[in-house]
């Protein structure tokens, strides 16, 4: 049984251990908060079809383990990702400090055109906040990343993170900055988008030139 979609994007969720990456994924796919969360081992997988800019896009999301020991394993997933969510915990300074490392990895290992959004998770823990919105925002700006603060617990900004990233990628496709046909772009065509029109062939039985 096949689903229909216009595009398929490969996404990565990266960041230090314990920042809530798996919960973000779970919230995005299932719409619920995952209470009993354990350390991710290796890389987990989830997918969902969303509507972006009038097109249906299937997101294939790889949720990586943040623990150091899995670093080399997760690294092999970086290649061929179109977009990435770089996650840190707003209530943990350490995870914010580690961002540079993750960013470097992403920039060097993944495609140079990868679209990254910085996500400050656990927004609901405002009382224990250790990273201000402003400084993170500035960091994002300096590094040409999009930025959002989210909460996997409440669901705030979870969808938006993925949507925003997808929208940017879609724009790039439309402007020609990204070429889905190139291998390793992390983007694939889905069903109907192969055809210029969505209508079936005309009644005269002739073949559409496209």
């Amino acid at each position: 049984m096949s689903e229909t979609y216009d595009f398929l994007f490969k996404f990565l969720v990266i960041g230090s251990a314990g920042t809530g990456k798996s919960c973000l994924l779970h919230q995005f796919i299932e719409g619920k908060f995952k209470q009993d969360s354990s350390h991710t081992i290796g890389v987990e997988f989830g997918s969902r079809i969303i509507n972006v800019g009038g097109k249906s896009v299937k997101l294939q999301i790889w949720d990586t383990a943040g623990q150091e020991r899995f670093r080399s394993v997760t690294r092999s997933y970086y290649r061929g990702a179109a977009g990435a969510l770089l996650v840190y915990d707003i209530a943990s300074r350490e995870t914010y400090n580690a961002l540079t490392n993750w960013l470097t990895d992403a920039r060097t290992l993944a495609s140079p055109n990868i679209v990254i959004i910085l996500v400050g998770n656990k927004k609901d823990l405002d009382a224990e906040r250790e990273v201000t919105f402003m400084e993170a925002s500035r960091f994002a700006q300096e590094n040409e990343l999009m930025f959002l603060e989210s909460s996997a617990l409440t669901g705030e900004n979870v969808e938006e993170s993925f949507l925003k990233c997808s929208r940017t990628i879609l724009n790039k496709i439309e402007t020609g900055d990204l070429d889905p046909d190139r291998m390793g772009s992390g983007i694939q065509y889905g069903d109907p988008s192969r055809r210029r029109t969505l209508q079936p062939r005309n009644a005269d039985g002739g073949k559409c030139p496209c």
Binding site: G42, R69, V73, S76, R79
Partner: peptide, 21 residues
Amino acid sequence: FAPLEEVWEALEEWFLLLLSE
């Protein structure tokens, strides 16, 4: 076989990880 190279790479990494484990 080209896309599979990445999987084989991951396999290598996993084995190294297992070894250290």
